[in-house]
């Protein structure tokens, strides 16, 4: 018994020793900045002086953002616009592509490589290239439109088209990654279930709806949660392609937060925005997990 306890203690100790570098990394680069961000959201601080010289203003930053700031709520709405478009399109197209690839064994490797190639390309480079593709006068897209006798579009310089244009690029960029995750989920579904359903005379649509979808629900939950968290924090492509414009059509919350901190030198206010966004991400993720926690093989067999 004593030997068992010693062995267990030793194993635990070893586990902590191996975990220490990761824990230190997490504390230094995530926990401390997070706590510092929350702390500084109660101060007025311009970052040109040490934090010790920041002025305590209580909840003023939160009051201003929620009640007085004319840009914060619209920036949140723009963020939700991006998130809804990006998450739905990426998830649906990635799932359809995965289903298609799952049934097409012949070109699977080749197509998987093609779909995955945008994922390994740096987002900054992709954003710059897509800015050229979208250029109203010299861009590839308008050139293609002219071939089919369609009028040129303003894309990123149009108030209505700018956000859909950024969403389209973002979907293209991340599609391959989520397609692979769906593909892994699909390949884990037992073939016997489909064989039994075929014997019972079920159509392909019925099998997809009654077998595939319920069984890949955990995969879908993972994809939706990760996609949503990423989309709510969208920044790079918008920073490069539109800078939040035209007017404020693509000014998402993280970009507004960035401008508030680094252009207007209001780090306290920007930290308060970050804290509010953090709460929103937390709530959305919690709701998603609650709504989709049922499903998968276990639920099915039960």
């Amino acid at each position: 018994m004593r030997l068992n306890l010693n062995l267990r203690a030793s194993k635990t100790l070893h586990a902590y020793i191996f975990l220490t570098p990761v824990i230190i990394f997490l504390v230094v680069f995530t926990v401390v900045p997070l706590l510092f961000g929350i702390y500084i959201s109660f101060f007025r601080w311009n970052m040109l002086v040490p934090p010790s010289q920041a002025k305590f203003i209580g909840l003023e930053n939160f009051r201003y953002i929620l009640l007085q700031d004319e840009r914060f709520i619209p920036s949140l709405l723009s963020t939700f616009y991006f998130t809804i478009g990006d998450v739905i399109l990426t998830a649906v197209i990635a799932l359809l592509a995965a289903v298609a690839l799952n049934s097409n064994r012949r070109f699977r490797v080749f197509l998987r490589t093609i779909y995955f190639s945008p994922v390994i390309t740096p987002l900054v480079a992709v954003s710059i290239v897509w800015s050229y593709i979208y250029h109203p006068n010299y861009g590839l897209l308008n050139e293609l439109l002219s071939w089919v006798k369609l009028p040129p579009q303003q894309w990123l310089t149009s108030i209505t088209a700018a956000m859909p244009s950024v969403i389209a690029m973002s979907v293209w960029k991340r599609l391959g990654y989520y397609m692979l995750i769906f593909l892994a989920g699909l390949q884990a579904v037992p073939q016997e279930l489909f064989e039994a359903a075929t014997v019972d005379g079920a159509s392909k649509t019925t099998m997809f709806r009654r077998i595939t979808l319920p069984l890949i629900k955990p995969t879908m939950l993972f994809v939706l949660v990760v996609l949503t968290i990423e989309a709510l924090q969208v920044f790079t492509q918008i920073f490069i392609m539109t800078q939040g414009g035209p007017v404020d059509a693509t000014r998402v919350t993280v970009l507004y937060m960035y401008d508030t901190a680094f252009s207007y030198l209001r780090m306290g206010r920007a930290s308060a925005m970050a804290f509010i966004l953090f709460i929103i991400v937390l709530i959305v993720t919690f709701v998603q997990v609650r709504l989709m926690r049922e499903g998968g093989m276990n639920t099915y067999t039960n």
């Binding site: 007017v247 401008d259 252009s263 207007y264 030198l265």
Partner: peptide, 21 residues
């Protein structure tokens, strides 16, 4: 002191006007 913030605000309003908003 808030030169950048003031410039951005003015430019944004002008941009909204130029876009006929």
């Amino acid at each position: 002191l808030p030169a950048e913030e003031v410039r951005v605000e003015m430019a944004k309003q002008l941009e909204a006007m130029l876009y006929k908003q």
